[in-house]
């Protein structure tokens, strides 16, 4: 039961009608004040299904990142009448030295017949000293 923090989500990717957001959880895992819990949300407004969605991430060697299985790997074509579909995936980030966090991601997906391979950096993280009660 991860409670989102009051912080606004960060849009880390927004192209080809696919949006990826980072929501920061309010609390750290029990007894792990060095771990930030990030809920990744993926939303599509594409007129065709997006399939084979895969999110990978890397952090500096002084940190560790662990991705839990996503709630799915595809999103249906956007339908303004139906509630929006979303994929959620939990990312755990360990930062024992409380350094400024930098995260690299790779996002691959098929938009209809086109395959896409996107990557980028994320630096908008809450300051490590505030982790645990965001």
């Amino acid at each position: 039961s991860i409670k989102p923090s009051s912080m606004l989500p960060v849009t880390i990717f927004d192209k080809h009608s696919l949006r990826v957001l980072f929501h920061f959880a309010r609390d750290c895992p029990p007894a792990r004040p060095d771990v930030l819990v990030v809920i990744i949300s993926m939303l599509s407004s594409a007129p065709v299904p997006i399939t084979n969605i895969r999110f990978q991430s890397a952090v500096p060697k002084t940190m560790r990142v662990k991705l839990q299985p996503p709630s799915g790997t595809e999103l249906p074509a956007f339908n303004p009448i139906l509630p929006p579909a979303a994929i959620t995936q939990v990312l755990l980030l360990a930062n024992p030295h409380k350094e400024k966090v930098r995260l690299r991601y790779k996002l691959t997906f098929d938009l209809g017949e086109e395959s896409h391979d996107e990557s980028g950096d994320v630096e908008q993280f809450p300051p490590p000293e505030s982790w645990g009660n965001l």
Binding site: A58, V59, Q68, P69, P70, R102, R104
Partner: peptide, 17 residues
């Protein structure tokens, strides 16, 4: 020119690594 970035990175992780 961009200052040399001394950061060394872990390999990419996904949910099935």
């Amino acid at each position: 020119s961009q200052s040399g970035d001394a950061t060394t990175w872990n390999s990419f992780q996904s949910s099935d690594t």
